[in-house]
Design a protein around this nucleic acid. Structure first.
Ligand code: SF4
Ligand code: SF4
Lengths: 137, 137
DNA sequence: GTTAAATACTACAAACAAGTAGCATTTATG
DNA sequence: CATAAATGCTACTTGTTTGTAGTATTTAAC
């Protein structure tokens, strides 16, 4: 159960970009809009590009824009691409491989909550977020 | 949204100890029962002792036993003592201080899931876990 | 073609979390 | 009292994540 700082950065970046889905954003512009260290932001943008969420256009007047429709990009995919699925779905006791056949007391207590989390992350797309009646990000 | 490896270790340790609430456990014994590096385990036990979950008895034949009834120790308290409340309750976008008055699109999407997590951790005590009809840990 | 403004690549540095080691202290046992 | 078996304290080491720097590459504009 772990969302790294980097994943949270990705949420900010993609969430912001999703406000205007078709715009081409430069790293510099994004840095002005969002509070993330510039060089790190740039590296993340390249990573997100490699992960297939956005695509980059090189050269002067270049930048980043979505590679797919924002309604098709779920929060779970973003988490998975950076932290990996196990960061959410892994053993709550921290075991790499379960030795209790996925049914120890702790597992049973936690299972429902974990599923709720996975469901929310899986069902929520970037478009869902920005359909919300707010005008921030 | 973050449970550190150390918190997961604490779940293992206290969950195991809660099986027999009144027993005095030595670090050596716990190390045999649970797969945690011995020296690190010992340090954790001291920390958990300082946090008031267990109490230590020094000297030969010493060890650790619960300082309070296991029904009074919630998972949330354990998480809080190691990672801090914000590891769970903090901003999903990673901001240290919210600039959106706790109501941006992402916040609203995430809120219910976060509350579910907090509720589960807060309502579940060590006793609850071990009342479960399983015999592992 | 040269310049300027953008991304790409790769290595390094700093901060943090996890794990290890040595030695001090406490106390039951004989 | 001496020994043994336990916890307590503090510093060090290792590994991972986060952040920075330098340089190369791409492409629009002039
Ligand atoms: S059953 Fe227990 S040990 Fe196995 S994956 Fe679930 S929580 Fe972890
Ligand atoms: S409103 Fe948005 S920025 Fe503020 S704490 Fe909630 S998620 Fe974070």
């Amino acid at each position: 159960m772990n969302l790294s700082k980097t994943t949270k950065y990705a949420f900010r970046i993609l969430g912001h970009m999703a406000k205007d889905e078709k715009v081409l954003y430069s790293a510099q512009q994004l840095h002005k809009d969002i509070d993330i260290p510039e060089r790190y932001l740039r590296r993340l943008l390249t990573d997100l590009s490699k992960s297939g969420f956005i695509k980059s256009i090189q050269g002067r007047q270049g930048g980043f824009t979505f590679a797919r429709d924002t309604s098709k990009i779920t929060l779970m995919e973003i988490v998975d691409s950076i932290d990996g699925k196990d960061s959410i779905d892994g053993c709550i006791l921290g075991y790499d491989v379960c030795v209790f056949n996925y049914s120890c007391p702790m597992h049973n207590v936690w299972e429902e909550t974990k599923q709720k989390t996975i469901d929310t992350l899986t069902k929520t797309s970037l478009k869902d977020i920005n359909n919300h009646p707010h005008d921030v990000f």
